[in-house]
């Protein structure tokens, strides 16, 4: 394991932020700490980096107990949501900072920084100051700076949170490719489930200071441990007292075994997919179907359809 956090407790004043949290991050993995804001995920990341002290519990990095070690001795790379660029230094000096602190020879620093500049596509910006870069460029610089010291683990705190949607998407894909190239154990914090599913190979869902579930994106999405995880990872609707993903609902014109009668209330076309809002007895539900199916069934407000969870649908009883 690259990182092991064992039974971490942390409170700020009277507010408990982490309660008996245990997380394991395998070497070389790309792990997402996913959860709503205030769920404790950033605090856990900062505890791993040494920027916060846990009230109790142990942190191991590469097998060594680092719980009482200062951040500068943990050999972690940390990337902040708002970049934390050194404003008075050029891009080159920002990236070289960790190497200069380690008193590496000048020519070695020069070579390494230029490798990294190339890696993050900032070669022509070496002499600029952070204020002359866009948000996305600043974050790539921050990433190069963290990678420069060849950290044991790379920790990213909402790395794309301050960027606009388009840049966010580009950087996500780029981070995934970068990880495939560099293979450094990476943990990133996000509240965006789509981002976690797209980028990570392991997801740890944190809410209310506790680990709700951890596993591959596939496992967490398809076999959610509880109602919270199911609701947080994707859209859900309620059918006959069970939670179902709207794309797992089967619509037919005629009654089928196990199906229930529903009245269509609204049909919304969203490009290639269609959202069907229905009323089942005294409950509302909705399903996501293809355009082809919607046309074949001639779905329109007021029509009656029969619905049931599809054969492969994962459902969860509502508590």
């Amino acid at each position: 394991m690259a990182i092991e956090a064992r039974h971490i407790n942390k409170a700020f004043g009277a507010t408990s932020v982490l309660q008996d949290v245990s997380v394991e991050v395998p070497s070389g993995s790309l792990t997402a700490l996913l959860g709503p804001s205030g769920g404790g995920k950033s605090t856990l990341l900062r505890v791993i980096a040494g920027l916060e002290q846990p009230d109790s519990g142990t942190v191991l990095i590469a097998g060594a107990d680092v719980t009482r070690l200062a951040p500068q001795r943990r050999n972690v790379g940390f990337v902040f949501q708002h970049y934390a660029a050194f404003k008075h230094m050029t891009v080159f000096d920002n990236i070289a900072f960790g190497l200069q602190i380690r008193k590496r020879p000048k020519n070695e620093i020069h070579k390494r920084v230029h490798e990294l500049l190339e890696l993050v596509h900032l070669d022509q910006f070496a002499k600029r100051y952070p204020a002359q870069l866009s948000g996305g460029q600043r974050q790539r610089m921050a990433l190069a700076r963290a990678l420069a010291v060849e950290p044991e683990v790379l920790l990213l705190d909402e790395p794309f949170g301050a960027l606009d949607a388009q840049v966010r998407k580009e950087l996500r894909a780029w981070l995934r490719r970068l990880h495939d190239d560099v293979h450094v154990t990476t943990v990133f914090v996000t509240h965006d489930q789509e981002e976690a599913i797209e980028v990570a190979d392991t997801i740890v869902v944190l809410a209310g200071g506790r680990v709700e579930q951890s596993g591959s994106p596939h496992e967490v999405y398809d076999n959610p441990a509880n109602e919270f995880v199911m609701r947080f990872l994707g859209p859900v609707t309620e059918l006959d007292g069970r939670l179902v993903r709207p794309h797992d609902i089967e619509l037919t014109a005629e009654p089928e075994p196990g199906s229930a009668e529903a009245t269509v209330e609204r049909v919304v076309r969203l490009g290639f997919e269609v959202r069907v809002e229905m009323r089942l007895g005294d409950q509302d539900a909705w399903a996501q179907v293809t355009r082809g199916l919607a046309e074949r069934l001639r779905l329109a407000p007021g029509e009656t359809v029969h619905v049931r969870p599809g054969p492969d649908a994962r459902t969860l009883a509502v508590v």
């Binding site: 920027l51 951040p71 660029a85 050194f86 602190i101 380690r102 921050a142 963290a146 010291v149």
Partner: peptide, 27 residues
């Protein structure tokens, strides 16, 4: 304090952080 924290994670001690990050910032 994020710049100072970033310097720490990059290996700078308290004095190095003060001299290389804090002082230039408030110069």
């Amino acid at each position: 304090d994020e710049q100072e924290q970033a310097a720490q994670t990059l290996g700078a001690g308290r004095w190095q952080t003060f001299r290389r990050i804090t002082v230039p910032g408030i110069r």
